[in-house]
Nucleic acid binder design. Sequence first.
DNA 1: CGGGTTTGACCCGCGC
DNA 2: GCGCGGGTCAAACCCG
Length: 445
Amino acid sequence: MNDYDGNFMDDLSPLSSPRIREALAMLDQNENGLNPISKAFSQTNVSPDPQSEQRSGGLRNRMVGFDIPSLEIESISPFANSFRNPILVPSPILVISPGFSLSPFLQSPNMLSNSSSQIIPPCPIPNDAPPETVESSGDAHATMIISNNNLPHGPIDVDLPPQGGSDDIPMEKSVYITSHESNVDPTGPPLVPSFDSDVVAEADFMNTISLESGSKDNDKDREYNQEEDKVKDHNVVIEPPSRKRKFQVNIEENMVSNIIGVTRPKNKTQSVIIQVENEENHPDDGFRWRKYGQKVVTGNPNPRSYYRCTYTGCKVTKHVERSVDNVKLVVATYDGIHEHVPPPERISQSSRKNKSGSSMSQDPSMQTLGLGMLHSSVSTSQLLPSPLAPQMDMMQYYMDGLSKLPSLPVNRSHGVMNRNDEPKIDLVIPDGTEGFQGDKEATIS
DNA sequence: CGGGTTTGACCCGCGC
DNA sequence: GCGCGGGTCAAACCCG
């Protein structure tokens, strides 16, 4: 356990919740030998930065529909059982709903550490539909590809058919993810984003795929769980100011970072590649980034932008570029892991309305794309402290119920909600008619 | 003034 | 050794 984890865990007051414990216990038991890569999802309405939006010519992050057919979640996630989440999470694919940030996954390797050994049920996943088909499906989709550095462009179409489908899951090193959220019951129990062990790092994912569920991993899991127990015992009732502040800010801004999915690098030098269908070139991932370069690379007319995490001491970098094949597809490559929680959004920054600066969509032509990007509609996650918000926080919120939270505009659809917007419904245009409008940025070199 | 972006120059690894 | 290309530096600039 590294420092980060320690801090992180200390940050998890929700862990003290008996319900959480229960849930964790369930994870330990892990029926079906499945440790869902991703399980519970909640749709989230996100509000893109109004100003950024303006600056970007009205482009919005289009978190498109998440009309995943009802799927059997019970077989996948213990949490699913607990919350009756209709969403099926076919392993090994990560299905991440908008409203969650990937940052937690990237920031802590350990957060993903115990997932390896248990995730893999060969899940039936049709792989015959190319990403493009997702868009043509008629419903808005938020698509995302998480891949390992080696095979960034070999997505697996995870747009599952209603009952899970068929056969083998191609063992690709990248996963094409289509998020769905149509089945979220507004009045039902909140979905529980159980990220602690549910999310599988792509890298490990492959290991898992290779069925490396040996005792070693199990030991890791045990260790991990023990750590969790420690944390749980270690009371974390006091919510860090930063988180509280972030929470408030989010409410004010109607800002919500969306967790999409993650891949865990085996080491800090390994990169994580995430592809997101997004109009914004730089979706928000919860962390602050400073752009330090831009360049046109061979084979892609679209400029690649280089970003560095602004957190003191953090050496994580990433570069973002539009896919050559599909300009609507934003490819973000992360190098390194954040060993810190995403910084709370500064008040000053909020006041600035993200004009410039923070990765929270300040880039005029390039909204921050990160992990957790995809602004979509505003929803429950909006209530979360932050994208950085440790998974458990989200879990806590969901588990405790949103009813306890302040009444906020909640858009159950995937549209983007602006600060002053009324909840919107499906702003996204899947047919691409309103597709990428081009990048204003000039290229260099 | 602080914090961010822009962008030409530079560094460096890699293939030939 | 050389050239190419990706990644980084850093001064200038922008913005609230």
